[in-house]
Design a binder for these strands. Structure first.
Lengths: 335, 335
DNA sequence: AACGTTGCCTACAACGTTGTACAAACGGTG
DNA sequence: CACCGTTTGTACAACGTTGTAGGCAACGTT
């Protein structure tokens, strides 16, 4: 049913290699030969077999993007941008969910890596530099977090700086009892640690005390976790006048919990998130947040991967930084 | 750097094929030979080359899922379920965004199909039965919509019935001026047409008039479109007491627009959506909606594909139906 | 003792493609 | 007209894997 180079060659009356040359745009093919071959290709609706091509050339034209969870909007939006950026390089993107656990991430990183793909863009939650070191072979670009100094290229954003700035914004509004939602004790929460550090920095700079009671952990960063953490804070008796949630989905959950408790946002409690997902632009109230430039993150990641693929695979790992900006919306601004 | 069967074979002192047999779990291999081979595999960290395997076997172990947009939460959630269901069959899922236009969908359907994948699960917005017919080869399962009677297997939900039920629910609440957000005139909106039909059915059954002025079109089904359509309805002077949005993101946008207009939900206007995305469980107010069983849709799709791959490829196309239920939340219930 | 039968393993070819080496045809030059 | 370089095409091998055919022991059966 499916045709091969050989079929096209027979139909056009040339050798298999000549058809291959036409398909690959090789120059030295007489115009009339080329025309005959192209006609045969069209008639048979020939399409190259990518597996065979890969086997021969060592390239598939497919890269993978591994993220913890697709139904966390931040990763879905990021995935969209990566797909778009990769298209400019002629790549198809295979998207994979890791689930976020260390073991699962190891499996994906080593398993996916196998042979189908040319490279991997990886957004790890729990993977350690040690795990990475054991992954020889496929070029990889890490997203978002610093796994100390592992061997791979990375695109990072300044988590500490961003967290400091958005916390300072809350302080600038006159808020003094600023709670945190989303801290994580485990090693898995690199983002959480960095954002907490930025928060603490900002408090210190403003001469405010760091109060452990205001820091609410969240096992994962879904809406439900945010709502639960916020309820926990409220019932514990602490009365925050602002909340810094470590991502937007946590913040949306927190908004919900505040609403249920009858507290007004931002009048009673100001709320900020992190990620700038689309939901936050339509929530009630709309959500102030740190907006990492996702398109830029995606583009940088794809470019790093392209450089690595075309260039020196043993060159030292590069780290590039993507910009962010703060978005001030209703959740911190009285109308 | 990467090892092949040959390397393992040399190390274990057996033939290449024997190693292949061990890898594939062939029975007739003496235990001690098997042990030797497995040891060599472990030492060299051998991993099979999937391209070569595919070239030889005609199977990749990869299926593709093509959806219009990943940052529409419904599709992200669906993707997650498909990945999970596919894992049970030992498949990796390659996720692709089509963008939703007819031409783009054709490109994806025919292009992706090429050779890397065993099968395709496709959620089309605009593709016609005609387009599909021209895609020979790769088995395909269509999701969600009925492209008349095309040649492919499908998983559908009863859009008309679900729309009728949720509209009837609104009527049962005493609402009489029920608006619609999300209608589409083009051929692209199969869902829109079916849901509109269900809406009209329910009105008719209740003896209510169908009023064109209450039907607001939406070019796409994002939050922004829902907000714009709702604003349009409000400024046009019609005063709906309920709104049926054709999906949840539209509904979230509509909630926003109603909030900005100072209208209370559900007291002044009841709102329902369709899809049951996570956002709707945390929005303010929480959103009543039609909840298709996404896990079931995903499982059925993967099973259909598996049957098609293992069984008769020329058997007539099958159509299976996935269940849904109604979720009543705050947006239709006064506390 | 001769004969299958079974278990275990090997050699070879093939999947569809492209790089390499080379042959044939062509055109221009001395 | 002999020579040479360029253009255009071909044949062959190889990428890493698995299906097929078959060989060789070891065993039980006649």
């Amino acid at each position: 049913m499916r045709h091969r180079l050989k079929d096209v060659a027979e139909r056009a009356g040339v050798s298999v290699k000549t058809v291959s040359n036409v398909v690959n745009g090789y120059v030295h093919v007489r115009p009339d030969t080329r025309a005959r071959v192209e006609e045969a290709i069209a008639e048979l609706n020939y399409r190259p077999n990518l597996s065979a091509r890969h086997l021969r050339k060592g390239r598939t034209g497919v890269i993978a993007l591994a993220v913890p969870e697709l139904d966390i909007p931040y990763f879905a939006e990021l995935a969209r941008h990566v797909v778009t950026a990769a298209a400019d390089f002629g790549w198809t993107v295979l998207i994979d969910q890791t689930g976020g656990g260390r073991e699962q991430e190891r499996v994906v990183a080593s398993g996916i890596t196998d042979h189908l793909i040319d490279g991997l863009i990886f957004s790890p939650l729990a993977l350690t530099a040690e795990d990475l070191a054991s992954l020889d072979g496929t070029p990889m670009v890490l997203l978002g977090e610093r796994i100390d100094h592992g061997p791979a290229d990375r695109v990072v954003i300044d988590n500490v700086g961003a967290a400091r700035e958005i916390t300072s914004h809350l302080i600038g509004l006159g808020r003094r009892r600023i709670a945190v939602v989303g801290s994580q004790r485990t090693d898995e929460g690199a983002s959480a640690r960095l954002r907490l550090a930025g928060y603490a920095d900002a408090l210190r700079a403003a001469g405010l005390d760091y109060d452990e009671a205001l820091v609410a952990p969240a096992p994962a960063w879904h809406r439900a976790d945010g709502a639960a953490a916020m309820r926990g804070l409220l019932t514990s008796g602490v009365r925050p006048d602002a909340v810094f949630c470590f991502n937007d989905t946590l913040a949306l959950g927190a908004l919900r919990a505040l609403h249920e408790a009858g507290l007004r946002v931002p009048e009673d409690v100001a709320v900020v998130g992190f990620d700038d997902i689309e939901d936050g632009r339509f929530s009630i109230p709309t959500l102030s947040t740190v907006a990492p430039d996702k398109a830029q993150i995606a583009r940088l990641a794809v470019e790093l991967l392209a450089n690595r693929l075309d260039g020196d695979r043993t060159a030292p790992a590069r780290e590039v930084s993507a910009p962010y900006r703060l978005e001030f919306r209703e959740s911190t601004q009285t109308p």
